[in-house]
Computed example of a mutant assay.
Amino acid sequence: MAGSMTAMKKELRKKIRGVLSDLSEAAVATQTANATKTLLSMPEYKAASRISVYLSMPSGEISTSEVVRDALQQGKKVFIPYTYKLSAPSDGQPKSIMDMVELHSVTDFESLERDSWGIPTPRRDSISSRANSFGSQGLTEGTESGAAGDNSGLDVIVMPGMAFDSQFGRLGHGKGFYDYFLHRCHKSSGMPFRVGLSLTEQLLPPNESVPTDTSDVRLDALVTGDGELRRAEK
Rank of each mutant, 00 (worst) to 15 (best):
A147I: 11
I127Q: 01
R17A: 15
A29M: 07
L199D: 05
S129Y: 06
I127K: 00
I97V: 15
V217H: 08
K9I: 03
K85A: 15
E144V: 15
E44G: 07
A131R: 15
E110I: 08
M98T: 01
E201N: 09
T107H: 11
E44F: 11
E233H: 04
F134Y: 11
V223I: 15
N151I: 07
S152M: 11
G225A: 02
A232F: 00
M100K: 04
E44A: 14
L182K: 00
S189H: 13
A88N: 14
A47K: 15
L20K: 02
D226M: 06
K175T: 07
D213L: 00
G60M: 03
E233T: 05
M191L: 12
S116N: 12
Q202T: 07
G196N: 04
G138F: 08
N207A: 14
Y180M: 01
G3S: 13
T32R: 07
L86P: 07
D91A: 15
I97A: 03
D70I: 03
V195Y: 00
H173M: 12
V106F: 04
T38H: 09
S133K: 03
D165W: 02
F177E: 05
S21P: 00
E25Y: 09
A88T: 14
T121E: 12
D220V: 00
A35M: 15
F134C: 02
R184W: 05
F134W: 08
T140Q: 14
M191G: 01
L182G: 11
P160I: 09
Q202K: 01
T224E: 10
A33P: 01
I51P: 03
Y82T: 06
S215E: 06
K175F: 07
A7F: 08
N207C: 11
V158H: 11
T121D: 12
S136A: 15
Y178P: 04
S189L: 10
G75H: 12
L72W: 11
Q74M: 14
S105H: 08
G153E: 11
Q74L: 12
R50Y: 11
D70M: 03
A71I: 08
P89K: 02
D70E: 14
S128R: 14
A7L: 13
L72V: 06
E44I: 09
Q73A: 15
V210I: 13
E11R: 13
K175S: 09
T200D: 12
G227L: 05
L197N: 02
S49E: 15
P81F: 09
G161M: 02
S24N: 11
P211V: 03
G18K: 05
W117H: 10
D213N: 13
Q137G: 10
D99Q: 04
D115H: 08
E61Q: 13
K37M: 14
I157R: 00
W117Q: 08
D165F: 05
G161Y: 01
L20F: 07
L171N: 00
G172C: 01
L72N: 09
H183A: 12
G172Q: 05
S65I: 09
K10Y: 08
Q167V: 06
Q93H: 09
Q167D: 15
H183V: 00
K95P: 04
S189P: 00
G92R: 01
G153D: 09
V78P: 04
L139M: 13
Q74G: 02
L72F: 10
F79E: 07
D125Q: 13
D70C: 12
T200S: 10
V68Q: 04
L222R: 08
R123N: 13
D125R: 13
G169Q: 06
F109P: 09
M191R: 10
Y178N: 07
P58S: 10
V19F: 06
F181K: 02
I157G: 01
